[in-house]
Nucleic acid binder design. Structure first.
Lengths: 234, 234
DNA sequence: TCAGCGAGAATGAACGTTCGCACTTTGGAA
DNA sequence: TTCCAAAGTGCGAACGTTCATTCTCGCTGA
């Protein structure tokens, strides 16, 4: 941003290119620490990872690390806050999608695939688990969830106004269901089962279509009468 | 706290006969410890809860506790193993349901409601997060998931043989989706949002119907063509 | 009498954090 | 330019605490 230009000019060109100013150097160090912390938290969990472990991973002494973060708690909060931004592009695509069904289908799958491919699924699970106990984390998570809520909520309203959503179902119930689905896809260990996430697209689309598309559900109870002749097993 | 062991110990001679034997007393103590551990893990997480905390909650000294469990690790494993049984009745109901759609709808919601009502959702989140790092826990969890897989898998096969499931979708993809949904409903903080889980039944049924019910999805891409005139927002 | 139980102090390791110090960079005065 | 004080940075030993676990010993019921 607002670098002292004179200082930059006193430096040799090579050094200036690498770390042009104090501010940037500081930012680079912060990033280095965050990367190390992410790796350690991923491997050992928030409580399980020690500051020593993180220092070693960042190739830095404790004294140095504590110049950048006031505490382990602060580090955890920074990790949570930094990882919310992952969704930005995906959210934009949901808003731009030709229909709510396409948007949600692709958005959910893209999100799940991104998280699993980057290997960050355990970290997500950790964040959500920790947020149920840690008030500060909970607030951070809520704030980042707000963006998601806003985008999907707006898309739902828009689709509803267009008559693309079954009027029987209250809109404010659809959103939590979507959120829970996304949550499940990310937290559940899909890759372990050997499922390709992209291959799930037809099934996901069918499911979301069932949820949102009008008609066909005036009284769903007929499914009961229809299938009385059925199921039991050993 | 209403701990079984407490009550038993303060009971008159007649009632004491119920837990007279060494074995039964030992079992009661184990239960007392497990209850305390569950409460502490729920509040502070596996790593966050200390043995001291658990001892205090169980009203027991460390020396006593260690007569029943070899380590904190062992306690965690016991908690994970004991909490898998929650699903037994719900699973049975899924198998007995008149149709796969009814079974899955009610099963998923019953499971979610039970977990949330008992306030154990954070513990579930904790277990799943921890299992991604701890090999032993992972095995325990896998084993308990096997039961669920078996029951739902059997129900799916049965329904599929009856023609109740869209033949286009491979069965082995449906199961992970169901699992992920259940997982999401449990782990996501539905009650915080103020949603009554039972009220979600129509929406859930519509969604599962969309996923399983035949017809209507020969080429779902028409949803794209249909809605080209759509969505953007502020 | 004896095996098992329970309490609680003791132990030793690990942890988050701080401290003191040496080194470098910065910005301005001489 | 040269010099200096101030500020910033990094290191790693050290600190105080907390933790999981063990030990010792007295107690209890059979």
């Amino acid at each position: 941003m607002n670098l002292p230009a004179d200082t930059a000019m006193e430096m040799p060109a090579v050094a200036r290119a690498e770390i042009a100013s104090r501010f940037e150097r500081r930012e680079a160090q912060v990033l280095r620490i965050l990367d190390a912390a992410r790796a350690c938290f991923l491997k050992s969990g928030f409580q399980g990872a020690s500051m020593g472990e993180i220092c070693a991973q960042a190739d830095m002494s404790p004294g140095a690390l504590y110049r950048y973060f006031p505490s382990k708690e602060g580090l955890i909060e920074a990790i949570c806050a930094s990882d919310k931004e992952i969704d930005a592009k995906i959210l934009a695509n949901i808003a731009k999608a030709p229909s709510i069904i396409e948007g949600m289908t692709r958005g959910l799958l893209a999100h799940a695939e991104q998280v699993h491919k980057s290997g960050m699924a355990p970290l997500f699970a950790e964040i959500f688990a920790e947020a149920k106990r840690n008030q500060t984390l909970n607030t951070i998570l809520d704030r980042s969830m707000c963006d998601v809520h806003d985008v999907i909520g707006a898309a739902l309203h828009h689709a509803s106004a267009n008559g693309d959503i079954d009027p029987v179902l209250p809109l404010d119930q659809l959103l939590p269901i979507m959120m829970a689905m996304g949550h499940g896809l990310v937290t559940h260990d899909l890759p372990k089962i050997g499922i390709s996430i992209q291959a799930m697209e037809p099934a996901m689309r069918a499911m979301i279509e069932g949820l949102l598309r009008p008609t066909k559900k005036a009284n769903a109870d007929l499914s009961l009468a229809e299938h009385v002749q059925s199921s039991q097993q050993t």
